[in-house]
């Protein structure tokens, strides 16, 4: 009786194991089908791209990026890319408000410049793009969208300008916060020149991004990207109001100014040859 039961159990175990193994095999085959059947294989292809970037966070400055890029896909998952462009930048309303009110705040005779006021304009970077994820998305029942998810890292150089919101070298109207040559005190737009202390520089920049590239038709694609531009800040501390209002250079360079991050959401188009 025991031997018979043992044989039955053994047979049952073998059957269960075989069934499970078969199911696993089927699943493995399916997975491979999913993985292998890539409709778009960018490896070995050159591609060009255009993009527009909008600021995700804007405290004192806002940037609007216009970039173009050339990339070569060494493999399906790996590419090298060069990007260059121009960022139109401006002070935010908050920065303008601070600058106007601070002119009238004469109780603050010594202060430091604010951080993160550098605005990036021209820039060029080169980097690598690693796209380990290839996926398919069911947008509607009959329309699958193929995409790659990638990370990007690289570095380059950029041109920067910095317009102070504290140091006005020629105060026109302290109470109204006027520090420019406007023809009418009430009309800010009539000014053609301002007297805020302005600095420019070229500096290295590092950039990193995560994003998706959706393939469209054979050669086209849409890119959605979150990108961070990082560069070293540089500002002065211990500024004396009498000095800057007399047009003299004042203060010391901050010893550890930290890094400035410009985070942007980038919408782009790519064309693969």
């Amino acid at each position: 009786m025991n031997a018979r039961m043992l044989r039955v159990f053994a047979a049952l175990l073998v059957w269960l194991a075989a069934t499970g193994a078969a199911a696993q095999d089927d699943e493995a085959v399916l997975d491979n089908v999913v993985v292998r059947n890539r409709l778009y294989e960018p490896g070995g292809h050159l591609e060009v791209s255009l993009g527009v970037g909008l600021p995700v966070q804007s405290h004192l400055t806002a940037h609007y990026f216009f970039t173009g890029g050339v990339a070569y896909n060494l493999f399906n998952t790996f590419a090298i890319e060069a990007r260059a462009g121009y960022a139109a930048s401006r002070h935010t309303g908050l920065a303008r408000s601070i600058s106007e009110s601070f002119l009238a705040r004469e109780d603050k005779r010594v202060t430091d410049e604010l951080e993160d006021l550098w605005e990036m304009n021209f820039h060029g970077v080169a980097g690598i793009r690693w796209a380990p994820i290839y996926g398919k998305l069911s947008l509607v029942s009959d329309l699958p969208a193929h995409f790659q998810a990638y990370v990007w890292a690289g570095g380059g150089v950029g041109s920067f300008q910095r317009n102070s919101v504290i140091q006005c070298s020629q105060v026109v109207d302290r109470q109204l916060g006027v520090c420019d040559n406007r023809t009418s005190l009430e009309d800010r737009g009539s000014a053609s020149e301002n007297y805020w202390v302005r600095e420019t520089r070229m500096a290295p920049v590092v950039s990193a991004a995560v994003g998706f590239r959706f393939f469209i038709l054979d050669k086209h694609g849409v890119r959605l990207e979150l990108r961070d531009w990082v560069f070293r800040d540089n500002y002065r501390v211990n500024l004396v109001r009498d000095d800057w209002e007399a047009g003299r250079v004042t203060g010391d360079v901050a010893s550890s100014p930290g890094l400035t991050h410009l985070v942007q959401f980038d919408l782009g188009y790519t064309f693969s040859f």
Binding site: V35, G135, K136, L137, A145
Partner: peptide, 8 residues
């Protein structure tokens, strides 16, 4: 929306 993706 739903979909699948392959990692490497």
């Amino acid at each position: 929306l739903y979909g699948k993706f392959a990692f490497l």
